[in-house]
Design a protein around this nucleic acid. Sequence first.
DNA 1: GTAATTATTTAACATATGTAAAATATTTTC
DNA 2: GAAAATATTTTACATATGTTAAATAATTAC
Lengths: 187, 187
Amino acid sequence: MIELLTYLNQIQSLSDKSEQALVSICNEIIVKKGKDLHPIGNTCRNIYFIKKGFLRIYYFKDYTDVTESFEFENAIVARADSLFNSNPSKKGIQAIEDSELVAINSAQLFKLYDEFPDIERLFRKIFENAYVETVNRIESLQFHTAEERYANLLDQSKNIIQRVPLKYIASYLGITQVSLSRIRAKR
Amino acid sequence: MIELLTYLNQIQSLSDKSEQALVSICNEIIVKKGKDLHPIGNTCRNIYFIKKGFLRIYYFKDYTDVTESFEFENAIVARADSLFNSNPSKKGIQAIEDSELVAINSAQLFKLYDEFPDIERLFRKIFENAYVETVNRIESLQFHTAEERYANLLDQSKNIIQRVPLKYIASYLGITQVSLSRIRAKR
DNA sequence: GTAATTATTTAACATATGTAAAATATTTTC
DNA sequence: GAAAATATTTTACATATGTTAAATAATTAC
């Protein structure tokens, strides 16, 4: 849990009591490569911290597997719409590599908000940051060509190409695998 | 201010003290059609509530005017990245029609968070909702054709076509004006 | 109300991306 | 390590979208 608390305290410093309360609603989870941390159709009942490994959020559009996002080590991941609105999620979270996570039970977490304002503040900031990131992602999808988006992805995280099958990258960039192959062939 | 308080209490009920504190940091603003509520380059120091009118968030990409989003009556609008990180914003907020707004001073608002947890909770929920919406928008940009995105926009808000110049709609959909004209000609 | 400005559509052509199918390459399973 | 399964690239062709320029329509300013 140390990795988690270190990560969280960087965003918002927590009192000892708050830390204890948080830890008490956490569980460590291991997910094997290719397995679902959160299957499509389930309502999201946890917020996850990725200690180790690499995952993706995905769904099916007309029977085609689509990667919405990649989720790296040392970060929080959750199915936002399902989490906040208690809907069954159309999207799943799948491990691309064997991964170690901490699951924070969301129902219990939301209860802690009443007693520990620093915990509520912490997660307010976490999702504010996530919000800003998605707005930037919109900009990228709206006004960069597929080629630019591919180049940006390489810049952001150079080892992503080694770690992720290209078919996942193609749908993440909003293009087909064939199109991605062409872009790669050009370079 | 009544419209604002009605709107906010639907999201999170506020105590009388909290309402008073909130109102004390608000100012009513009128922006004429075509004018900037928030000019490009300024750091965002307010969260706005749109009482009446219609605005857009825009920026320039390679000297081309790009509409990132449309903002309707009875909703909150803010430049998220600039607001949370105190960066000068690359994006501006412009009135498409004469608009009446309430400006909530963000520095003062963030101070109120310490004293009034219900206010912090309110804005936590507001930005959580905004986050979920942007995730949905990503899905739309990633896997719908321009034609589908145009159809969806018509469904969502049928009067948008009457109220917004098409050049703004084109860039919002991530396509050129010419391409939008072609899509419209097909129907 | 007319002239000037701005917005929208259309045309012609270039480029990017999609689709389907086949050819290779790589990884996994036993 | 060979067979099977999966991933990636390539080819050929279809379609969508971009670019530039011109034509038309609508709006704004005086």
